[in-house]
């Protein structure tokens, strides 16, 4: 019990220490606007003038919550913040927030829907990005057909040959498992689980900062216990967000 309390206290202290380590920048533009919320739709309520020091408190999407020396707190867009300076007068390095740069993101999550051998497909994935060319992805899917349901999980490696292209194609290769549950209304056939391999091609079209539309085709090979292995085609369209 005592240990738990000590741990909790330590955690709170650590949190407070890290929370106190706010970074400061000096306003280099003639002025920057402070809004009441993290978005263009929220009203401007204060203006910080050139030369004022502002502390960066937190971030929500592309908006930073800042505190002025007089204690006023508000939200500033990264576009305005890019124009501010660091304490030494160097331009603030906000490459990470650059609209076209995905190179600094290490994770991506996405959702998609489509067709899996004639069945409706719902899919969720999470990806880890090693380099701008190579990433690995875990995909969980359910395909809802007339006669059966399929649950799929796949681990795949993706290669982007031209990461600098605006519309970026990629190649995917992976393995996983497929579980087939026949529908309840049919004559009882047993559930079965088979190993799968897949190859595929996809393309990503950026829609907004760190956000892309994705089209993908995969050809699955299910290694069934029957005489013939089964080949299944999957088409999907989805959204991918980098963070």
């Amino acid at each position: 019990m005592l240990k738990t309390i000590t741990t909790c206290l330590l955690l709170v202290l650590t949190f407070q220490i890290s929370a106190n380590e706010t970074q400061q920048v000096q306003v280099a533009d003639p002025y920057i606007d402070l809004r009441t919320g993290p978005g263009k739709g929220y009203p401007r309520f204060y203006v910080a003038e050139e030369g004022h020091w502002i502390s960066l408190l937190k971030r929500k999407t592309s908006w930073f919550k800042v505190r002025l020396e007089n204690g006023t707190e508000g939200w500033v867009s990264d576009k305005q913040l890019i124009k501010t300076l660091t304490p030494q007068g160097d331009a603030l390095d906000v490459r990470k927030l650059d609209a076209d740069s995905l190179g600094d993101s290490h994770w991506a999550i996405g959702i998609s829907g489509g067709d899996f051998g004639g069945a409706d497909l719902v899919s969720l994935h999470i990806a880890y990005i090693f380099t701008e060319n190579i990433s690995t992805e875990l995909t969980l899917s359910q395909a809802l057909g007339t006669f059966s349901n399929n649950y799929l999980y796949d681990v795949s490696v993706q290669h982007r040959a031209f990461p600098e292209w605006h519309v970026s194609p990629y190649f995917t290769l992976g393995a996983g498992q497929i579980r087939t549950d026949p529908n309840a209304t049919l004559v009882a056939t047993e559930d079965r689980t088979d190993d799968t391999f897949h190859v595929g091609l996809g393309v990503e079209v950026p829609l907004a900062r760190r956000f892309a539309l994705r089209f993908e085709y995969r050809n699955y090979l299910a290694l069934t216990s029957r005489d013939d292995d089964e080949e299944i085609e999957q088409w999907k369209i989805g959204l991918n967000a980098y963070f």
Partner: peptide, 18 residues
């Protein structure tokens, strides 16, 4: 001094709530 104590803004160090 500034060469030694140059302070950079680390965007990743700012707490994000997405």
């Amino acid at each position: 001094d500034p060469d030694i104590e140059r302070q950079q803004i680390d965007v990743d160090a700012i707490d994000s709530e997405d």
